[in-house]
């Protein structure tokens, strides 16, 4: 099956990046938000990101205009009626995602594939809200979605090989390295990253060293661009806590039990960069 028109549900940090990379790769994209205000904000984020790409000489002004021209914003789910693929990128809340998938199943054409950008919720939870489980899979992009080269695609026990093949081709057409994985908690990258991040929080909680020093040790030792606390502040402490809780819920394995310090910081509202306070002050 050939994908021509793509829908993206949600135009937040991930949704706007996904919309942008799809439109840049030549697809017509319909992007949905809950209300006009959020939609306007999401679209202006995309516009701003493209403007920076033009400034840096990564694309021409014409390409930017053409890319924006391929994006249609909407607040009505019915506008997905002629999409071949819809990628869901709403907040990590199982009930919300199940409602979105039930809606998508109702309005999308029978051939359409539905993908979820979740980083931690089992795909089967969303697939089972539809009557097309063979056409539902995980499409896990990495932040920022228009830059990071990896796309994890997640196959449930019901996803068809044809769906996997179509989305693999689609992912390659976006310039991504596509890796298929099974529908197990946290898939792979999230799982390994969360282990690293939770362990860093435990080391801080145990008083081994300061957040800054732990970051420095990881950066110098591993030669990675960002330390675990910088990463957590960027991702959001609440997001990490949700993922850890979901993994713990699913496996009951103590390694996913969130350290009390993380939960306290979330309770205190120190959610990271987005509120200017997390493990660092901004």
């Amino acid at each position: 099956m050939e994908i021509k028109k793509v829908g993206v549900a949600g135009c937040g940090m991930m949704g706007s990046g996904i919309t942008q990379i799809c439109a840049r790769s030549g697809y017509s994209v319909v992007v949905l938000e809950a209300n006009e205000e959020l939609l306007k904000k999401g679209l202006s984020n995309i516009e701003g990101s493209l403007a920076r790409a033009v400034e840096r000489g990564k694309m021409s002004g014409e390409e930017k205009a053409a890319t924006m021209g391929r994006i249609q914003g909407t607040v009505k789910v019915a506008d997905f009626a002629d999409c071949d693929l819809v990628i869901e990128a709403v907040p990590e809340d199982v009930e919300l995602k199940r409602r979105v998938f039930a809606d998508l199943d109702r309005v999308c054409p029978p051939h359409a594939i539905l993908g979820s950008n979740t980083s931690s919720i089992p795909i089967m939870k969303m697939a089972s809200a539809t009557k097309r489980m063979d056409k539902v899979l995980g499409m896990h992009f990495f932040n920022p979605a228009h830059i990071m080269k990896l796309l994890e695609i997640i196959k449930t026990i019901a996803t068809s090989d044809e769906t996997m093949a179509t989305v693999t081709e689609f992912g390659k057409s976006l310039g991504k390295t596509v890796v298929p994985v099974k529908d197990m908690p946290g898939f792979i990258v999230t799982r390994l990253l969360v282990v690293q991040l939770l362990e860093a929080v435990r080391a801080l909680q145990d008083g081994l060293a300061s957040a800054r020093d732990i970051d420095e040790a990881q950066k110098l030792g591993l030669n990675i661009p960002m330390g675990p606390f910088e990463e957590i502040d960027l991702v959001g402490l609440d997001v990490l806590l949700n993922v850890a809780d979901a993994m713990y819920q699913e496996t009951k394995d103590p390694k996913w039990a969130a350290p009390p310090l993380l939960r306290q910081m979330v309770d205190a509202g120190y959610l990271g960069y987005k509120v200017k306070r997390g493990f660092y002050n901004y």
């Binding site: 282990v195 690293q196 362990e199 081994l208 020093d213 732990i214 990881q218 030792g221 591993l222 675990p228």
Partner: peptide
Amino acid sequence: VYQRVTAAVMNE
């Protein structure tokens, strides 16, 4: 610190 955090990632 470093070995503890990276050992966890390698083990996983």
